[in-house]
Lab assay of single mutants.
Amino acid sequence: DEVTIHLGDKTIRVDGLDKELLEILKELARRGADEEELRKEIERWER
């Protein structure tokens, strides 16, 4: 499953996201997290 996250004018595509992680990323994005913060969160989950 590829998920596309839209952040204002930026788009991040991620393969096979965990549903819980997806919810966390959506919440972070709502709070104004930037792409770098979201990537760090994704990397934390992948470990």
Rank of each mutant, 00 (worst) to 15 (best):
K26A: 07
D1F: 13
A29L: 13
D9R: 01
V3Q: 15
R44F: 07
I12S: 02
I12L: 10
L17P: 02
E27P: 00
E35N: 04
E20Y: 08
R30I: 13
L17I: 13
R31P: 00
K26T: 09
G16H: 13
A29M: 12
L25S: 00
R13N: 15
D15T: 09
T4C: 08
D1Q: 11
A33K: 03
E36H: 12
E37V: 11
E37K: 08
R30P: 00
I5E: 04
L38K: 01
K19W: 11
G16V: 11
D34G: 13
I12E: 02
I24E: 02
W45C: 01
E37T: 14
T4N: 10
R30M: 13
L38I: 14
E36M: 12
E36V: 12
K40V: 06
I5V: 06
E43I: 05
I42H: 01
I12R: 00
E46G: 06
R31C: 09
R30H: 12
E41W: 08
A33Q: 02
R30E: 12
R39N: 06
K26W: 14
L22Y: 10
L7C: 04
E35D: 05
E27N: 06
R39F: 10
V14M: 04
E2G: 15
H6G: 07
R39D: 02
I42P: 00
I5C: 06
E27Y: 05
L25R: 00
K26S: 05
E36L: 08
E43T: 04
L22K: 06
D15W: 03
K19F: 11
V3H: 11
D1L: 13
L17S: 07
E36R: 08
D18H: 09
D9E: 07
K10C: 06
E27S: 07
I5R: 01
E37F: 06
R31W: 10
A29G: 04
L22G: 04
E2L: 11
E23L: 11
E36Q: 11
I5W: 01
L38V: 07
K10S: 14
H6N: 15
E41C: 05
W45H: 04
K40G: 08
D1K: 09
D15M: 03
W45F: 07
L38Q: 01
E20A: 14
R39Q: 09
R44E: 12
R47Q: 15
D15R: 06
D9T: 03
L17Y: 11
D15A: 07
V14Y: 14
T11Q: 07
I5L: 09
E43S: 05
R31H: 11
L28P: 00
I12P: 01
W45L: 01
I24Q: 05
I5Q: 03
I42K: 01
D1P: 13
L28G: 01
D18N: 08
R47L: 15
I12Y: 05
L17C: 05
G8W: 09
A33W: 05
I12T: 02
R39E: 06
E46F: 11
T4E: 13
E35A: 08
T11K: 05
E37G: 04
T4R: 06
V3A: 14
D9H: 06
E37S: 08
L21S: 01
L21C: 01
R47W: 12
V3W: 15
V3G: 13
K10L: 15
E37M: 12
L17F: 10
G32C: 03
E36F: 10
R39G: 03
L21R: 02
E43Y: 05
K19Y: 10
T4P: 08
A29W: 08
L21T: 02
W45E: 01
L38A: 02
T11R: 01
R44T: 08
K26R: 15
L38T: 01
R31M: 10
A33H: 04
D34Y: 03
T11A: 11
H6L: 14
R13S: 14
D9I: 03
R31S: 12
I42V: 06
G32Y: 01
L17M: 10
K19N: 12
I24R: 11
W45M: 01
R44N: 11
L17K: 07
L7Q: 04
E37H: 06
E20P: 04
L22H: 04
R39K: 11
D9P: 02
D15H: 12
D18K: 05
T4H: 14
L22P: 00
E23A: 11
D9S: 03
R31N: 14
E35I: 13
L22R: 09
E20W: 05
L38W: 04
E46D: 09
E46L: 13
L28Y: 03
G16A: 09
R31A: 15
D1N: 13
K40Y: 08
E35H: 06
D18P: 15
R30L: 14
I5G: 02
L25W: 00
D34A: 09
R47S: 15
E20I: 10
E35W: 06
I24C: 02
D34N: 14
E41D: 00
V14K: 02
K10E: 10
I42E: 00
L38C: 04
K26D: 05
L7V: 15
G16K: 10
D34P: 10
R39H: 06
R13P: 08
A33I: 03
L17A: 07
L25C: 03
I42M: 06
E36S: 10
K40A: 15
R44S: 08
E20K: 12
I24Y: 11
E46R: 03
T11F: 14
A33P: 00
L38E: 00
E20G: 12
D34I: 05
E37P: 00
G32T: 01
L22V: 15
R47P: 12
I24D: 01
R39S: 05
K26N: 09
E20N: 10
K40D: 10
L17T: 04
R30V: 10
K10F: 15
D15E: 14
L17D: 02
T4Q: 11
L21E: 01
K10M: 15
I24M: 08
L28V: 01
E23G: 06
A33N: 02
G16W: 09
E27M: 06
R13D: 08
G16F: 10
E46K: 06
R30Y: 11
V14T: 06
D18E: 09
T11I: 14
V14D: 03
L22C: 04
R39M: 15
E35V: 09
L7K: 02
E20C: 05
E43N: 05
R44Q: 11
G16I: 12
T11M: 04
V3S: 14
R13G: 08
K40I: 10
I12D: 03
D15L: 03
A33V: 06
D18I: 06
H6V: 15
L28M: 15
D15Y: 05
G8Q: 11
A29S: 07
E36I: 10
D18G: 07
D34H: 08
K19Q: 11
G32L: 01
